[in-house]
Design a binder for these strands. Structure first.
Lengths: 331, 331
DNA sequence: CTGTTAGCGCTTTCAT
DNA sequence: ATGAAAGCGCTAACAG
């Protein structure tokens, strides 16, 4: 590996001092146009690139950076959050370094980014201990989950309340035999299916006999369609279904056409998330809407608080966002 | 602004030297468990966070970072590219700092990131000059566009060929009076609508009389639906329409239901992009598909080449990706 | 207008 | 097992 071209090399080549080189490349004035050109020409010739680390080290202006772990780029729920986070973070003077945990595991993503950022934000799935270790002890702002270790902060979504409201609303609309389509996400970490928290709340509020009407599949439109077909076949009398997320719910709505099932006449479908995309299907998707903007804003408030304390370990901060029913056509 | 807590402060507080602190916080061994604990406790107490800049400055391992400007998080085309870029970049040892240019303009995004990254990648819209200036002369890898200034590299998509093929295919399927739905994006920078390049190719291949059958609207499903309605009203005899992108095309397909127009029987609809989402509508969307993965891979090849040259100014590199028809049901 | 001096905060030798 | 010295590459503050 050839030695790096530094400001000294350029200074020497141009026959000036380092300081003059600095003045030229940052056009700071106090330099004659002639020498400036000579210096810039030397930079060009030597292929000089200033070290961003050296510069940031010496410049007082503190640049704050957060690492954001994106769970999936295939689910608009996460990309909408990413977009919101990016623009809001920029407004508040944050840089956002992103990593995808779709292919890579969370720990290695944290590990990779730990030298580049001041804190992490994301929807985390791994164990608390692994996370702080991989993150080199940097603060973590956890979305839709609570952590128990020091340095872990969180923005929760009160999904228990959301599910309760949805079940109640479906009942109010006349539904009697409600089913649920759950995510098979747990299969990624465990050999056997474990109901998601959302599914747990469903069981809690929909009553014990409804626990039979549960199907699970991968978190995609196709998965949702699949599970819906399965559920309808096994329980022809089912008159409503709560779906783990909108992506799967949209798949269920699509599948209903192929299966010749009238929605909401025969079966009511209710998703969770509140995606805009839910308006693109027929019938449009009724859903438990999560306020993504509030989620992001709360997370950034925590980030700002941490920054104000120079990222020292602070007592855990917790915020909660309350979802609300978004009544459209499918239920 | 309180002075930053440095390694020296910790060393002093723990009654050891800086090096010992380094050993403790990076668990490097050659240190007694006892002093290590004492040092870590002091770190905790003082709220010490190592400076990532100082560390990166002195560590030999070079970390490479790219700035990626995302045009929109509301169009899956861009988020799919983002996801692909993120995972591929991680594999190749790159960090990706992202900024959204949906709310912020490109120049200020570049300016903001210029101190944090080694090069930029993105779908750029602004003038070459503004871009290099805002990017502080860092190399730019432009997606679906060519730049003329030194330091600008690009991965083009041969959309002229793509549109030619689409028009030909529509003609081959029997279409005679083809229209186009264009993006109104130009209105963002100019006071009056300017046809996009895609629309230019359309005019070139669809013949002069088709130039009357052009409508434009914002790049969204709603915009596509709007434009489709407008076009159908003005030209009831139109038998096919090429749409600027899949998002708008999906909107057009949705609108066709409301308008009672049979697709493809009455009007054939062909999008551009090749989104997976095109399979979620009925009828599924025929489209000119762009290989996003190839786009990203080519961009990263260029990035790697630049990194290999320590980001010195290299002669412009250009790659081209060829789109291909993806024949589904809507045309 | 240009050069000199003095660090930024950390890790790497190399002693001890 | 610990400490001292020597920078990493750059810019701020002052001289001249």
């Amino acid at each position: 590996m050839a030695k790096r071209v530094t400001i000294n090399d350029v200074a020497q080549a141009a026959g000036v001092s380092r300081q003059t080189v600095t003045r030229a490349i940052n056009d700071m004035g106090e330099i004659s146009e002639q020498t400036k050109q000579r210096v810039l020409e030397a930079c060009q010739r030597l292929g000089y690139r200033p070290s961003r680390f050296a510069r940031n080290l010496v410049v007082r202006k503190k640049t704050r950076a957060m690492g954001y772990l994106v769970a999936s780029f295939r689910n608009p729920y996460f990309t909408e959050i990413a977009g919101d986070l990016l623009s809001t973070a920029a407004e508040r003077g944050w840089h956002v370094v992103m990593a995808s945990t779709e292919t890579e595991d969370e720990a290695s993503a944290l590990d990779m980014l730990s030298g580049q950022v001041d804190l992490f934000i994301g929807h985390f799935g791994q164990d608390d201990g692994d996370l702080v270790k991989a993150g080199r002890g940097l603060p973590l702002v956890m979305l839709e989950r609570t952590g128990c270790l020091p340095g872990m902060h969180s923005v929760e979504v009160d999904m228990r309340e959301g599910v309760r409201e949805a079940i109640e609303a479906l009942r109010g609309a006349g539904a009697r035999r409600i089913g649920m389509i759950d995510s098979a996400y747990s299969l990624r970490n465990s050999p056997t299916y474990v109901p998601s928290p959302r599914c747990g709340y469903f069981a809690e509020f929909a009553g014990p006999e409804s626990a039979k009407r549960i199907a699970f599949d991968e978190e995609s439109m196709a998965g949702g369609g699949q599970a819906f077909a399965e559920l309808v076949r096994a329980h022809p009398d089912m008159d409503a279904v709560l779906v783990f997320n909108d992506l799967m719910a949209i798949g269920a709505v699509q599948a209903s056409h192929a299966l010749g099932i009238d929605v909401p006449g025969q079966v009511r479908i209710c998703g969770i998330d509140g995606l805009t995309l839910g308006e693109a299907v027929h019938p449009t998707l009724t859903t438990v809407s999560i306020d993504r903007h509030a989620l992001v804003t709360n997370a950034l408030d925590i980030a700002d608080a941490l920054a104000a304390a120079d990222f020292a370990e602070l007592p855990p901060m917790r915020r909660t966002v309350r979802p609300r029913m978004l009544w459209r056509e499918s239920a």
